[in-house]
Write a protein that binds this DNA or RNA. Structure first.
Length: 261
DNA sequence: ATGTCCCTTCACAAGGGA
């Protein structure tokens, strides 16, 4: 199973590039973030023509997450499944079962700056995500994929002191991410690469991409049952180049599943 | 060095968000 996560920064603006990339890479399951679409505007037929079933959870102007799958799309759950109205105002998580794996497409709040209301909302949302995962089948295959807006450690940031008023690298954010991993989820990128300087996001401004000023904030977290069959992992930096790119590059991982129902 | 991009609207310019 080839799984991809990609923050596309407006699916409307990015659709031609997304179509082209999917045609070349042929992933089985795709998690998209920041579609910025209402559900009625989601281009389901475009993806159907490429062989994908699709689900979308959007609100129109901001946020919005989607799942595409060529290996089945069942038991779709929107948000935290109605568990927390305050945290579900924004369309930030969508979950389904694809090819025997429970998969979530996740868009963690940005947080803006440490101490800001948005920062406290980010931490509250991460706590809500943790509660949501409490409901998982502990024996099931699990993938949590998306834009976490957290750089797991200092290797994942070009310069810790320069970053976003220290959001994305603050201790409480990193602790919340570590707590997710403590549940048995593995940052699969680090199963294949030890080096720093390997990023998934670069600010559009100031030529940051070409200066190598980025962060690794897009993650695929996988249950240990899946990591056992982990193959290649790749950030496709080329997708950040050229005309009208997203500010994020897609992250890809291949798994051979122990068993597919 | 807030140097970009994408969204929306009391819309064709400006503000919000990242």
């Amino acid at each position: 199973m080839r799984i991809v996560t990609w923050n596309v920064n407006s699916l409307k603006a990015r659709l031609p590039r997304v179509e082209e990339w999917l045609t070349q890479v042929r992933p089985d399951v795709v998690c998209l973030q920041e579609t910025k679409l209402a559900d009625a505007a989601f281009p389901a037929l475009t993806f159907q023509a490429l062989g994908y079933d699709a689900a979308h959870h959007g609100e129109g102007r901001w946020n919005g997450v989607a799942l595409l799958s060529r290996v089945g799309l069942a038991d779709v759950e929107y948000g935290f499944g109605g568990a927390d109205a305050e945290l579900e105002r924004e369309a930030r998580i969508l979950t389904a079962t694809c090819g025997g794996v429970r998969v979530s497409s996740v868009y963690v709040p940005n947080g803006r700056e440490v101490g800001h209301d948005h920062y406290h909302y980010k931490l509250a949302w991460l706590a809500g995500l943790s509660r949501y995962l409490d409901r998982d089948d502990p024996a099931g295959h699990r993938l949590l994929c998306g834009d976490f807006n957290i750089a797991p450690d200092d290797r994942d940031v070009w310069n810790v002191d320069e970053v976003h008023g220290a959001t994305h690298v603050s201790a409480p954010e990193r602790a919340a991410l570590a707590a997710l991993c403590d549940r048995g989820l593995v940052d699969v990128f680090r199963e294949r690469y030890d080096a720093g300087g390997l990023y998934s996001w670069w600010d559009y401004r100031a030529g940051n991409f070409h200066k190598g000023k980025g962060m690794r904030i897009d993650l695929i977290l996988a249950s240990r049952s899946l990591v056992a069959g982990l193959g290649a992992v790749l950030i496709d930096r080329n997708a950040r180049k050229g005309k009208s790119p997203s500010d994020h590059a897609p992250l890809l991982a291949d798994f051979s599943l122990p068993e597919v129902p």
